[in-house]
Design a protein around this nucleic acid. Structure first.
Lengths: 362, 362
DNA sequence: CTGTTAGCGCGTTCAA
DNA sequence: TTGAACGCGCTAACAG
């Protein structure tokens, strides 16, 4: 819908057929000239190039893709609803800058799929692939344990990369951090310091990173000959502001002397408030290991140690490999797995309270 | 290029023809079912819907667009090279959040054109329109004074919006701030305070916002019966870190007693350093009006006044109007023009040093 | 070196 | 209610 001033003198879209008629040649020849292919005489080529230039011809990208079986864009899609996906503003921006660095030299279109998630996380995050708009796709964030769509993405043959693994599809193209080892290291550290009742604050209920945490936690306890007490494990969601109350609740049990803060909210202030409300004092009656995406940074000054999850680093390598896959320099699928690093906290700066992916959603 | 494991069992892409054969009907019928059109018997419809569901059919977006003349994405493109376009990280992120808010309910694809600019700013920022990938387009940032492409964009008839005006195309669809008035108000303010030798630090050489600054500046001087001394006007680029040295240079002339800092770099620290090197002391031998995109914030504590450019506010209204245009609730083109506001500085917080659009480019 | 022809997958027209 | 045929704009195979 346009008003008269724009409607009446709409520029006619030139097609390859128009150019051919103008130049007195066939469409085939025009196509060859435009795509810089051989088999056209120099003066014919020049004449056609001039017309293309003059009328500002640009081929219809849909028709071109239809015929040549090449899709138009590099896709970016988020497989999880926002309340489970901890995609921070800074991460998103960082990712965009990375995509820019890698793909702008190729003149790519970077296409974000804004297909809206319902409360049940039901929207198809992969439609850009199956509608054949995406020539490749980055899936930002974790997959649900019962995700089925990813199997089809995998079989589609287009280059893709998930920032996260999936048990149900071990050959999945991914760049991730090993959360099993992360939970294992965190638990083992606290066991060695004499704790036997170790609570865990975790996120990603129903998603792969959640199950990985449980697995590593269980493995360390098993090695120490201790049972897993499910009442020690508590979940938080990213949307709900309940870190404080969950921490308060879980520490009512005075037998609990240690806490693994693996919610990845990086929300030190809320944890601190929960500790205060529970009447706990870190270093005296509680020891904490907290998880962070930032190297050499603590979530909480009072923590005993922190675990660094090199998600950015894994993603960076993954994007590079994805580009290699797209441009035929290397085969897929991608298998990048970075190991987390546990480090005792000693004067590192605290992370500022992170902000959600889209402020406006709250 | 894929390795064997993915190659061998690539899922066959189902076409509307495959579905038709499977259901024992014609493609026409399948098309009607998929697009929820009438003229199909209920049991036929149901049978086809089940097949579509089972095989996960998704239509080829290119073929669909080709036939139905509907393009796939909302495009975002930056018409100016990065050294002249002051698109900050935070602005980009803010813009993305806004696009999310407006377009996610419609399930749109948001497509950024990463076509790389040469040093001469030569790449076509509008290719997504003419390749018929974009159904609408947001052009982020100013246009060059001699821009020709925008005329074709305008005539193409697709909804578009530029964050900036253009003299050469007054009917251009735009959401902008009136820099002429901004420069006029700034100059008039300093004239009233008794200054006659007013220097101007500006950006956007060769771009519309640059010429608007000169026009407003000249108009105020003319009204005061003063001549324009071109030696008082200095340009900076965003890429080069030369704010400091330009400020130092321009204030060597001791007859200059006032400065309009309209570079829009919001780089208070560099200005301060330039003042120091020139041996100037704000409030004693120099008075400054600085321009900012943030309301109620100063670029420099020592400035006499600041001019707020409500670019975000204009853009927000513009995006809303663009959506109205796209979805037929309103006609285009868009004409949004916000007025800047001059305010004497009194204890506002200073803006932190902003960061460039893409850190990695420097 | 150049033209003819076919067909990519879809939606639409027209006929049955 | 359904199907056959056509064409959107382009590229590729083949023929001259």
């Amino acid at each position: 819908m346009t008003d008269d001033s724009t409607n009446q003198e709409n520029a006619r879209k030139w097609t390859i057929y128009d150019i051919a008629r103008e130049a007195g040649v066939s469409t085939n020849t025009v196509s060859k000239v435009f795509n810089r292919k051989s088999g056209v005489g120099p003066e014919t080529r020049k004449r056609i190039e001039e017309i293309i230039q003059r009328v500002g011809f640009a081929p219809h990208i849909g028709a071109r893709g239809l015929r040549a079986k090449q899709n138009a864009c590099i896709g970016v899609s988020v497989p999880a609803p926002f309340d489970v996906a901890p995609v921070s503003q800074s991460f998103l921006l960082w990712m965009f800058a990375l995509l820019y660095r890698v793909f702008s030299v190729h003149g790519e279109y970077i296409c974000f799929d804004l297909s809206p998630f319902t409360a049940r996380g039901e929207v198809d995050y992969a439609r850009g692939i199956f509608e054949q708009l995406f020539k490749a796709c980055v899936l930002v964030g974790p997959l649900a344990l019962d995700d089925k769509r990813i199997h089809q993405v995998h079989k589609s043959g287009i280059p893709y990369m998930v920032l996260g693994r999936l048990d149900a599809l071990p050959e999945c193209s991914s760049a991730a951090v090993d959360y099993v080892t992360g939970a294992y290291l965190s638990t083992q550290y606290l066991l060695r310091r004499g704790h036997t009742r170790i609570a865990m604050l975790k996120a990603f209920q129903g998603y792969q990173p959640g199950i990985e945490r449980l697995r590593g936690y269980g493995r360390a306890l098993e090695e120490a000959g201790l049972p897993v007490d499910k009442s020690l494990i508590h979940n938080v969601k990213f949307g709900a502001k309940n870190v404080t109350s969950v921490v308060e609740d879980m520490l009512q049990d005075r037998s609990v002397t240690a806490l693994i803060e693996s919610s990845a909210t990086e929300d030190g202030a809320s944890v601190r408030e929960g500790l205060r409300r529970a009447g706990r004092q870190p270093g005296r009656d509680i020891e904490i290991v907290s998880w962070t995406y930032k190297e050499n940074a603590s979530v909480l000054r009072e923590e005993a140690a922190h675990l660094w999850l090199p998600v950015r680093e894994a993603a960076e390598e993954g994007i590079g490999r994805l580009a290699d896959w797209i441009y035929g320099r290397q085969n897929g699928p991608i298998q990048v797995l970075y190991q987390p690093v546990l480090r005792e906290t000693a004067g590192e700066e605290e992370i500022e309270k992170p902000r959600r992916l889209f402020e406006t959603l709250e």
